[in-house]
């Protein structure tokens, strides 16, 4: 092996580890939602290449209201699904759409676009 091959190999291994760490292992930013005066936990979510915020921490047993606004035209993100809550909503571009329910049980629930390209997580505590 030439020195340059050794360097490329090491860089490759490092890059692979970095990819695994970056996408799977590194802790992700969480957005904690607290209830307002009305008792509703409310959060605005922007849909553009992903959900911002995408990890949402809420309290169990309190009504949750998510305001989705889709700022892109790509067909992929036009529907948001909460399969565990049997909720779904069509998101017309540029329009605010409400998704409301009360998460009763603590746990981690995913939400996503129809084909699962965009993903988010709802953590109920």
């Amino acid at each position: 092996m030439t020195p340059i091959q050794i360097v490329v190999t090491l860089v490759g291994i490092a890059l692979s580890i970095f990819i695994a760490w970056f996408f799977w292992l590194a802790p992700k930013g969480q957005t904690r939602v607290s209830a307002g005066v009305s008792g509703v936990q409310e959060v605005a979510i922007t849909v553009k290449g992903g959900y911002t915020p995408d990890i949402i921490v809420v309290k169990a047993g309190q009504p949750l209201r998510m305001r989705f606004t889709r700022q892109e035209s790509a067909g992929c993100s036009e529907t948001v699904l909460f399969p565990d809550f049997n909720q779904s909503a069509k998101l017309p571009e540029g329009e605010e759409v409400l998704v409301e329910f009360t998460p009763e049980k603590a746990g981690e629930y995913g939400f996503q676009c129809q084909m699962g390209m965009l993903r988010g997580k709802l953590i109920v505590e």
């Binding site: 092996m1 490329v8 190999t9 490759g12 692979s16 695994a20 996408f23 799977w24 996503q112 699962g116």
Partner: peptide
């Protein structure tokens, strides 16, 4: 199942691409 797989899919492909490059290079 498809959902679980596609959750890991893209990073796995990226790692495979890196490995491919390294193997061909070496």
């Amino acid at each position: 199942l498809a959902d679980t797989i596609s959750g890991y899919f893209v990073p796995v492909v990226m790692i495979l691409a890196v490995i491919t490059f390294v193997i061909w290079f070496d």
